[in-house]
Design a protein around this nucleic acid. Structure first.
Length: 480
RNA sequence: CGGGGCGUAGCGCAGCCCGGUAGCGCGUCUGGUUUGGGACCAGAAGGUCGCCCGUUCGAAUCGGGCCGCCCCGACCA
């Protein structure tokens, strides 16, 4: 009943009408996060952290499978180190938090709280790498970093956030670039196969690359408000950091050379993307592969409380083999209350079991994505649940893909681009000559920024600003 | 960092204009009845009105400052 649903979610604004307010309310109501007493810093609550943990686990398995090992580097970066790579420090300096005192004593050299760790990792590489035999070095660390943001939002932009950062060193440019692409593909699979968020994959134009790197690979997703969000980045750092920090190796040809390095990251921002991508007016909606709870079992006690609860427990026990399952046997809430509550928390599947079902040796299966309730036999319920989880996962992806396709269009003129950004938003594909001035003109007139140049780009046509031959296809969007 | 808004019980809000006993709904607690889409009855608890300074006999209410959060822009994962 829609009116009841409305009444229930009165504390969650409409997603279509007040997207930002909706987003914040969902993060808070679903207990993903809360505000902390520290300005700009959030608390990741257990349910939100469980989402992050699932991403972590999935990613870490793949990082390990591709030869990476985990280490931990210090939180503090001496100022002198941060300043070694000129472009790098220029890029990050405005956002750095500084430690100036230890106890009561003023430090001789202030320490940056890492905004990213290149500057503390490179000096270590300089000590560890001597020979081509020491390469590649494939390290990552899971940690938090601090960037003193002016305007913050739960998960999407906070002063401190969680991430992993990979830092690899290679003997050749080709190998380093291949590493970047390997990681990019892992990220793409995380986004599309696990989080059910379709992405555009490619390179950043130079203006948007990582400070200090040569080029940056990126994944760009489109949120329901038709703004792009950077979902992950993989940076080809060239020899810039190696030269700045003196990371050299003696190659097979007996020549000393700077190493080629990469760095890459995804952050807890992905939790925010997940909320925005799939949620609705009823609250959070989670794709099964990332959902901390995939199936919730709600017993309907009726007059045979003990019998029903026993059947519900047995059902939960059976399903443990195929799904992350939660039995909600709380006595203080009615079934109806629980239905709404678990929907608000985004649980993909619900199984209801009451006296009628116990008598008939069945349960009622309901999907968060909608559709009619279905009766399933207890015999074979594992297969029914596994199949429903797969289908729901697919449904979320299909919806996202349809939305992305629907909101991606090509334009050939500045007028068409302006109109597209004004009327439709989303991604707009353009031809670009490669001149920064042409990009700047588009930024100035549309408010959009260049998000990505496709990986397998085959530029054609003429630059939409100056008419010279195109050297790249660029997707523009307004972005987070 | 600019423009707008908000801050009163765990949550959602009223009260403020026009100063004088701090309220409502939900939730919470106790007992009982209930349970297939946010159950019902009875009783109870819960507040330095974001913080500081000022005006006043008296401030949630008026003035100033600060802090935090939200929204819209500009910048960044």
């Amino acid at each position: 009943m829609a009116t009841d649903a409305q009444a229930f979610v009165k504390e969650i604004p409409s997603k279509s009408e007040q997207f930002s307010e909706w987003y914040t309310a969902v993060c808070l109501k679903a207990e993903l996060a809360d505000y902390s007493p520290v300005r700009g810093c959030m608390v990741v609550r257990p349910y939100g952290y469980a989402l992050w943990e699932n991403m972590q686990r999935w990613l870490d398995d793949r990082f390990k499978a591709t030869g990476h090992v985990t280490a931990y580097f210090p939180l503090f970066v001496p100022e002198a180190f941060l300043k070694k790579e000129a472009e790098h420090v220029e890029g990050f300096a405005p956002q750095v938090a500084w430690v100036t005192h230890g106890g009561d004593e003023k430090l001789a050299e202030r320490l940056a709280v890492r905004p990213t760790s290149e500057a503390i990792i490179m000096p270590m590489y300089a000590r560890w790498i001597q020979s081509y035999r020491d390469l590649p070095v494939l390290l990552l660390q899971w940690c938090s970093v601090v960037r003193w943001e002016k305007a913050t939002r739960l998960f999407l932009r906070t002063a401190e956030f969680l991430w992993h950062e990979g830092h690899t060193a290679h003997a050749t440019s080709e190998e380093a670039d291949a590493e970047c692409r390997t990681i990019l593909e892992i990220y793409r699979q995380l986004l599309e196969d696990v989080l059910a968020i379709p992405v555009l994959v490619g390179k950043k134009p130079p203006s948007e690359k990582f400070a200090g790197g040569d080029w940056t690979y990126t994944l760009e997703a489109l949120m329901p408000d038709r703004q792009a969000i950077q979902a992950g980045t993989s940076h080809f750092l060239g020899q810039n950091f190696a030269k700045a920090f003196g990371v050299k190796f003696l190659d097979r040809d007996n020549v000393e050379k700077p190493v080629w390095t990469t760095s890459w990251a995804v952050t807890t921002r992905l939790v925010g993307s997940l909320v925005m991508a799939h949620g609705d007016d009823r609250g959070l909606a989670l794709p099964p592969r990332i959902a901390p709870i995939q199936v919730v079992i709600v017993p309907i006690p009726g007059k045979e409380r003990e019998k029903v609860l026993a059947a519900a427990r047995a059902l939960a026990e059976r399903l443990k083999a195929v799904a992350r399952v939660r039995l909600d046997d709380r006595d203080e809430y009615t079934p109806g209350w629980k239905f709404n509550d678990w929907e608000m928390r985004g649980v993909p599947l619900r199984l209801e079991i009451g006296p009628r079902d116990v008598a008939a040796n069945q349960a009622v299966l309901v999907r968060r994505t909608g559709g009619p309730k279905a009766t399933v036999a207890i015999e074979g319920v594992e297969q029914a649940v596994a199949r429903a989880l797969d289908e729901v996962q697919g449904e979320y992806y299909a919806r996202g893909k349809a939305f992305l396709d629907e909101h991606t269009l090509s334009v050939a003129t500045m007028e068409a681009l302006e109109e597209a950004m004004r009327e439709r938003r989303g991604f707009v594909r353009t031809n670009w000559c490669g001149d920064q001035a042409c990009e700047d003109a588009i930024r100035a007139r549309t408010g959009a920024s260049p998000r990505v140049i496709p990986l397998d780009d085959r530029p054609q046509g003429a630059c939409l600003v100056c008419g010279r031959p195109s050297t790249a296809t660029v997707y523009y969007a307004r972005a987070y």
